[in-house]
């Protein structure tokens, strides 16, 4: 099994990276920063369920709050896992002056994963994004840690070449190891059997609530999987592109990210027969590619 081809916004070609061992997961960490107050971990869902957490409601349009809005604000973003998730302010290269809100999450000391369209989009910002302000655990518009500006990005080649939603995954590299403080998610490729009926958690920065300044969480069930996507009945909105989609076997087990949220229901083909939001799945090949990105950050 080989990693997938990818490109960098920087001048250095990806071929400088060395081949890696074919493992399909990365390590996670809760970070070194002190955690005080209520963790809100009671919001999380674990394991699997044969039934949906809530009935399917009536939905209008492609946006993606399903029936009643069940999203919950995270008020203690200094605690894990919430502090591993960052609000992103995307700033295009001059002369473009409009901007964008997205979400990213730490997967290593200097590395965040996000949607490919948060770092590379010819139609939105004429190619590679210029810079991204990364605010881990952003609350009321401010990071309780600090905001850092990133200028180095990676994306899967399939996303760059053909805007393939199945490969809409990108990476943000930081110059400083902020992830050592806030922690980072473990990622792993899981089998169809492992993902069937799995309960998934998503948290990010929706722009329809509080001007995109606060983190909101929701959870529900995997409705369907394909080789490259995971479809779920979890409320999201614009601004949550790039959020982590994670599973957890129990309250005491480690969180494992399995997809990157990217699309509302407009990204789900009618032929699938489900009304769901979705994100590209962290397949074994993609996890191998992400490991190359992690290596590039530590080089």
């Amino acid at each position: 099994m080989n990693a997938l081809p990818w490109s960098s916004s920087a001048a250095l070609p990806p071929t400088e990276n060395q081949p890696i061992a074919p493992v399909i997961e990365t390590a996670g960490s809760d970070g070194s920063a002190e955690s005080k107050g209520e963790s809100q971990q009671d919001l999380l869902v674990f394991g699997k369920s044969d039934v949906k957490i809530k009935p399917k409601g009536v939905r209008v349009g492609n946006e993606t709050v399903l029936g009643t809005d069940d999203r919950v604000r995270i008020t203690n973003t200094k605690a894990p896992p919430w502090r591993k998730i960052a609000g992103l302010k995307l700033k295009p290269r001059p002369p473009q002056t409009s901007s964008y809100i997205g979400t990213g999450w730490f997967i290593g000391p200097k590395t965040l994963l996000t949607a490919g369209h948060c770092v590379y989009s010819p139609s939105d910002f004429n190619g590679w994004i210029g810079s991204i302000e990364v605010s881990p655990g952003q609350d009321a518009g401010v990071s309780p840690f600090r905001t850092v500006t990133a200028t180095k990005f990676f994306a899967l080649q399939q996303w760059i070449n053909s805007a393939d939603p199945d490969h809409d995954i990108g990476c943000i590299q930081l110059a400083e190891p902020l992830g050592e403080e806030v922690g980072y998610f473990k990622i792993a490729s899981q089998t169809d059997a492992e993902l069937e009926n799995a309960l998934v958690n998503i948290s990010g920065y929706p722009g329809d609530l509080d001007n995109g300044r606060n983190q909101y969480f929701h959870q529900n069930r995997v409705l369907r999987t394909s080789a490259h996507r995971i479809y779920y009945d979890v409320d999201t909105y614009g601004g949550q592109s790039g959020s982590p989609v994670w599973v957890q076997a129990s309250a005491t087990s480690e969180a494992v990210a399995v997809a990157v949220h990217a699309y509302g229901i407009g990204g789900t083909a009618p032929s699938l027969g489900v009304t769901a939001n979705s994100g590209p799945r962290l397949s074994p090949e993609i996890v191998l590619t992400v490991k190359e990105w992690l290596q590039a950050a530590s080089a």
Binding site: D124, P206, G212, Y237, G239, S241, G264, G266
Partner: peptide
Amino acid sequence: ARIAVEQASGPVPELMYQTDADGHAQIGL
């Protein structure tokens, strides 16, 4: 102003778009 794409004929990423000082935003649709 923040702009979300609520409905379109194909998949549109769940970004939130923000206008500049002159009220302009660039969006791929």
